[in-house]
């Protein structure tokens, strides 16, 4: 299954090119068309997304903002194939991915997408190093992992060093602070060299200064490695640090000029 999925998605140019901060409206890395999603609360259906058309360009740092509970996370989950839309399509590198069988979507999430969440979600029984290794542990069988473990461990330690947790490899998550846990989660998300990083309120549970650190890290990844990042946040200050902002209001996207926190503008209507 792995091989099929790999073949279906042709390798585009490597993401580790130095591209300028402003994203080129060139290659579309991800796109959605007419996404609809609603949740069932008992007998009542609550519509969340009502026709989302958007494009994520290669190497850009995109921010999706909106009120809490308006469906930003849902959109992110749909992009990451964690969930399936009621209607509409999701594209990755030109290929449709929302309708793929479960196993293929598992591979996408394991190899091509990296995800970080508001609540870090490290496995408490594993050490920090093992948490970072998790994507490899999941996709490899026992024999496979055993034969490649040196490579994986090397890469994991590299990543931990990069995020500044080199000395905490053997510690359990409960011994780490919030900021450290989020950094570990970022390292985990990067283990398999994903093409897109999906971040769901990454600073939501952190204080201002720690949040700043995290944002610095993300900006660095985007700038130096050309990693495409889609970030969901409700904090306009955080959102500001991205290349481009889209706003989710009442289930629909608006994309206005870059808004500053001091001068929020009202959305001027539907813009595709």
């Amino acid at each position: 299954m792995n091989k099929l999925v790999e073949a279906a998605i042709p390798r585009t140019s490597t993401p580790s090119q130095n591209e300028s901060r402003a994203a080129m409206p060139g290659l579309a890395h991800m796109a959605t068309r007419g996404l609809f999603k609603s949740y069932q609360k008992g007998a009542i259906g609550i519509p969340v997304l009502q026709g989302i058309d958007m494009t994520v360009y290669q190497g850009e740092f995109l921010s999706i903002v909106g009120q809490s509970g308006c469906g930003k996370s849902t959109l992110l989950h749909l992009l990451g194939t964690l969930d399936q839309p009621d209607a509409g399509e999701v594209y990755f590198e030109g290929h449709r991915i929302d309708h793929l069988p479960g196993a293929s979507r598992d591979v996408l999430r394991n190899r091509h997408f990296g995800m970080i969440f508001q609540f870090y979600h490290l496995l408490p029984e594993l050490t920090t190093l093992e948490n970072v290794l998790a994507p490899a542990l999941i996709s490899e069988s026992m024999l496979g992992y055993w034969s490649r473990r040196k490579q994986y461990q090397l890469r994991a330690m590299e990543l931990l060093d990069m995020v500044g947790l080199g000395g905490r490899a053997k510690h359990k998550p409960r011994e780490l602070s919030g900021g450290e846990m989020q950094r570990a989660a970022i390292a985990r998300a990067l283990l398999r060299q994903p093409k897109v990083l999906l971040a769901d309120e990454p600073t939501g549970n952190l204080d201002r200064s720690t949040g700043e650190q995290i944002m610095q890290m993300l900006r660095g990844l985007n700038r130096d490695q050309g990693l495409t990042i889609v970030m969901v946040t409700h904090d306009p200050f955080i959102a500001d640090q991205a290349d481009r902002i889209v706003r989710l209001v009442e289930g629909r996207l608006t994309e206005g000029p870059l808004e500053s926190a001091a001068n929020p503008q009202r959305p001027s209507g539907l813009i595709a």
Partner: peptide, 15 residues
Amino acid sequence: RDIGILKSLGASGRG
């Protein structure tokens, strides 16, 4: 939640 995380990292239901 841990199971959710595992699935988000690519673990299958079978796994």
